[in-house]
Simulated assay, not measured.
Amino acid sequence: MAIGAASEHEQTLQQILTEMDGFTGREGVIVLAATNQPDVLDRALLRPGRFDRRVVVNLPDKVGREAILKVHTREVPLADDVRLDELAATTPGLSGADLKNLVNEAALLAARREESAVRQKDFLDALEKIVLGPERPLLLTREDRERIAYHESGHAILGLVMPGADPVHRVTIVPRGQALGVTYQRPQTDRYNYPEAYLRAKIVGMLGGRAAEEIVYGTRTTGAENDIEQATQLARNMVTRWGMSDKLGMVQLAPRENPYLSGAGGGYVGAKPFGEETARIIDAEVQRIINESHEQAKSLLKAHRKELDALVDALLARETLGEEEILEVTGLPPAPPLETRPLAMAGREK
């Protein structure tokens, strides 16, 4: 089947090239194509005279998201409290299709609640469902709910005290999707470049759930599986893709990820372009970043144990807390910004 598939691929490619080469400048024909996998296209397709002009369509920014929301809400009755600009600011990373789904979900929620118009709360609840997943009706014991509350509160507290951390938008111990609890953080603005300190802050926050459990109970559970997976992948990218390891330097040791390919496009095909010693250093550097971040998470949570306990008590009583409620319960301000200084100024210091 592999040979046949390859043959059909070649025949299709050759036919496309033949048809495109048959055009002259007098037909007035423009050939357009779209793909989510530009890195796997045959180079013959990209030569001058064929698909030689490429337009990259990125995810919409805040202005684009607001314009898209206006399009999809033209036929939807909106309440006076709806602010599309605020919704656009709270939905970084969402595509046009995601925003259309958000409007549909909000309209369905308003209809179920027998409302005559869609309110801002309907949009926020719909966003929560899309981002965090639908609620799951699980019967949890008091002990399980308390442990989940400490786990999520660990994430939330670190999101308030780590410089540069994304603001904590919502914390819940209501099971959603595959998670028993969720801490939802969102960036204040669209991000296109990530400082090393910001990435470190994210890893520290990811490990806050496990750190809180260890501090309070002195034991570990399987609840940190997804946190560990994300933290490890982020640390490995710092070391192998972004040159953030002093021991390895600015050397590319992993390919650019393609999210549209199976397996997320990670990993080399065939032999890795580095030896066993380099592989050992990579593993050691990833482990160092994780261990340092874990210790920092535990240290910060121990220093803010009072706020941690207060947030847990509030979660056990209300199950879900919004951003303003979290700040009120803990008495903590939002996370301070990262301290940065221009490289030129740093280079003058001796």
Rank of each mutant, 00 (worst) to 15 (best):
T91D: 05
L69F: 06
I130H: 07
G49N: 06
A156T: 10
A97D: 06
G159I: 12
R136M: 01
I68P: 00
I281L: 12
Y217N: 13
V171K: 10
K272V: 14
D309V: 01
L332D: 13
R112V: 02
G208M: 09
R53V: 13
G249A: 05
E135V: 15
H151I: 08
T221I: 10
V171S: 04
I173Q: 01
Q233L: 14
G133F: 06
A264T: 11
L139I: 11
T330R: 12
Q11N: 06
A279Q: 11
G28E: 12
A6S: 04
R145E: 13
V56R: 11
Y192G: 02
I215Y: 05
L102D: 00
A211W: 07
G249Y: 07
A33S: 05
Y192P: 03
E114W: 04
I289P: 09
A235W: 09
V204M: 07
E8F: 10
P334N: 10
I130L: 15
P175Q: 07
E323F: 06
A211P: 06
G49K: 13
A107T: 12
E277H: 09
P336G: 06
L311A: 12
G218M: 14
L180C: 08
G267E: 09
L17N: 07
A346L: 15
R145Y: 03
P167S: 02
Y184A: 01
G322Q: 03
E285I: 14
G133Q: 11
P334S: 05
K302G: 15
D246C: 00
A107P: 04
P48Q: 09
G64K: 13
L109P: 00
L46V: 01
R200N: 06
E277P: 05
Q14A: 13
N58Y: 04
K306W: 00
K306G: 00
R147T: 03
Q14R: 15
R136A: 02
A314T: 04
G275P: 09
A165G: 13
Y150D: 12
D313I: 00
E324W: 10
D283E: 14
I282T: 00
M244F: 13
T24G: 15
T73Q: 07
Q287S: 07
A165C: 11
G266H: 09
N101R: 13
R43G: 02
L199Y: 07
E214G: 02
Q252E: 11
L253S: 02
G4L: 09
M244E: 12
R186Y: 01
L109S: 08
L124Y: 03
